[in-house]
Design a protein around this nucleic acid. Structure first.
Length: 274
DNA sequence: TAACTTGTTTAAAC
DNA sequence: TGTTTAAACAAGTT
């Protein structure tokens, strides 16, 4: 699934693919992918990309005609360039034709993703309505910042990390990976975490993001659940060996989501990379 | 075929 | 009232 690092990667790719080029046509192949009138896309013809940035798991692409496209990838959405070989069968939902360059497509097998058409003048207001918490990256977030944002809650830390209204951009993969690296029990209540835990979390979240980002060397992301390589320490490795201590990794449901962890490491207070 | 996958939203419970 | 938990939902794969 695309989480913060994958969205960051695709946002950078979009900048590269569209930077400086004129849009020839924007077409929604699948009307359900589009949030906004079809007519809003016609204004993009002749416009160029002004800026593409990431907010939480959203790509925010602002064009010179006063239109902003906000891409929400959900489970299987991704941006691809038409000329590049795809590792998976493609389901094209929206295509951007660009002068003198390959087309850029929004591909989404399960059709849960959306492309929101927003007037740039209303973008701040639109984002405000999403009730998104602050991003954990690339700003340096200290242990005190994490404790301030999450430390009052009595909820278990794992589902709390997934709550986008608290901290935005962390998904099920990032939560398990970051907690494992920080040596924190995913079941622990946030209000019970101690200073060392917050310090470890403040280090492990950016470490997960930057590690995942470094693994994104290809010009198209390839999801683990769709047959791609699994680049993660523990996610999706139930029964496998903990890369740090060698004990078998475990998994259980938490708030309807699968949590992966190493109980031996938590019990013995092991933290950090293997 | 039923169970499972996810982020987001809505409803219910505390 | 505010916080927390659970369930529903999208649509496709295994």
């Amino acid at each position: 699934m695309p989480e913060l690092p994958e969205v960051e990667h695709m946002t950078r790719l979009l900048s590269t693919w569209l930077g400086g080029a004129r849009v020839v046509a924007a077409t929604a192949e699948d009307p359900t992918v589009l949030d906004g009138p079809q007519s809003a896309l016609t204004g993009l013809t002749g416009a160029h990309l002004v800026r593409a940035s990431r907010r939480a798991k959203l790509t925010v692409a602002t064009f010179s005609d006063g239109t902003t496209l906000v891409v929400s990838y959900r489970m299987t959405g991704k941006l691809v360039r038409a000329d590049l070989p795809s590792p998976r069968r493609r389901r094209i939902r929206l295509r951007l034709a660009v002068a003198d360059r390959p087309e850029v497509w929004f591909d989404d097998t399960r059709r849960l993703g959306r492309v929101h058409v927003v007037r740039t003048s209303h973008l701040a207001e639109w984002l405000e309505e999403r009730d998104l918490g602050p991003d954990p990256w690339p700003q340096r977030r200290t242990a005190a910042w994490w404790r301030e944002h999450l430390g009052q809650s009595r909820r278990a830390i794992k589902p709390l990390l997934l709550d986008p209204s608290r901290v935005a951009g962390i998904g099920n993969i990032g939560a398990s990976e970051s907690l494992w690296r920080a040596g924190i029990d995913p079941r622990a209540r946030a209000c019970d975490l101690e200073a060392d835990d917050w310090s470890a979390l403040a280090a492990s979240v950016p470490a997960w993001i930057e590690r995942t980002l470094q693994n994104e060397t290809k010009p198209e992301i390839d999801f683990v659940t769709q047959g791609g390589e699994n680049p993660f320490w523990i996610y999706g490795r139930r029964g496998g060996s903990c890369p740090r201590c060698g004990q078998p990794l475990e998994a259980f449901k938490q708030g309807g989501r699968t949590t992966f962890w190493c109980s031996a490491c938590v019990t013995q207070g092991r933290r950090g990379e293997p």
